Simulated scan of single mutants.
Amino acid sequence: MNKVRGFGGRGAVVVAAAVVALSAGGCGNVIPGSAQPMGGSRPIDTRLDKLLRECEILSPGQIGKAIGEGVQVRDSFFGAVCMWDLIGAPGGNAMATLNWYENGTLSNEKQTNNKLGYLTTNITVQSVLALQIRRPDDPDSCGVTASAPDNGVIGWWINYRPGSAHPDPCGAATKLMEMTLNLAR
């Protein structure tokens, strides 16, 4: 029968010697100088000070109002894109998505959509050139992308429940884009 050995005897001496050796080996060095915030004395880079705050560009109440009377808006995901569940939207629950690509361009968006086989139409929203984007054979979703007021491109997508009776999703996506562009004026 095999016996399990504990750390008694010589094993305990070896472990104790290893602990002493590590402690004496410089794990507690003191570094001269004074603590500085990350970046030292350089000016703070404010380009990232609003990271993920683009999800707050419109309030849940404003998003709901653009979709329809009595629509409840719940945060679904905030990360690379912002997503909201639209509870009680016409035709049943739906989803709104906001994206902002700070280095994007409308021409790049149009090329990408064309590669994906999406239908892209030039439109004007608040006197700004924009793209209306539809997936082929998908009357339940629509996106509108425009140049962001400061940098890049911003886009809104509305996705209604497939097969439900609902208004044209491009109307709601366009309304959300109008509201967003109005904020910059």
Rank of each mutant, 00 (worst) to 15 (best):
P167C: 05
G28R: 03
F7A: 11
T121H: 09
C55S: 15
P32A: 12
R53W: 14
P136G: 06
D150C: 08
Q126V: 13
A21T: 09
W84N: 02
G79E: 04
N151A: 14
P43N: 07
K65R: 09
Y118C: 01
I133G: 04
E102G: 07
A21F: 02
A184G: 10
L131V: 09
Q111M: 14
E178G: 00
V20I: 06
Q111T: 14
A35L: 10
G88A: 07
D140F: 08
V30W: 10
E69I: 13
V73F: 10
L51H: 14
G39F: 06
Q62K: 05
Y160D: 01
S41N: 14
G91M: 00
G25N: 03
N108H: 05
D137I: 10
L129E: 13
S141C: 03
D168A: 05
L52Q: 09
T105H: 12
P60L: 02
I87D: 08
A94K: 07
V20H: 02
L106F: 09
L86K: 00
L131R: 13
L181T: 05
A146Q: 12
G70M: 09
V19K: 10
K110R: 14
G61Y: 11
S59I: 02
P149Y: 14
A66Q: 03
N2V: 05
T145G: 11
R53N: 14
I67D: 03
N114K: 13
T97E: 05
R53D: 07
A16M: 02
Q72Y: 05
S127D: 14
G88D: 02
D168G: 04
Q72H: 11
L51I: 06
Q36D: 11
K50M: 15
I133Q: 01
G143R: 09
S76T: 01
C55D: 12
V125E: 10
G91R: 14
K175N: 00
E54R: 10
P169W: 07
S164Y: 13
A66C: 10
S59G: 11
H166W: 00
W100I: 08
C170W: 03
L183K: 15
T174I: 11
G92D: 04
F78P: 03
N159W: 00
A148V: 06
K50D: 14
L52N: 06
W156I: 06
L176G: 04
T145L: 00
K65Q: 12
T97S: 09
L176E: 02
L183G: 04
A130M: 00
G9V: 02
S34Y: 06
V73K: 01
L58V: 11
N182I: 11
L106A: 02
V81C: 06
V81M: 13
A165T: 07
R10P: 05
L22A: 10
G92T: 06
W156A: 03
G61Q: 12
V14G: 00
M1E: 09
S59H: 04
S34E: 10
D85E: 06
N99V: 06
Q132M: 08
R53Y: 15
K115N: 08
T180F: 04
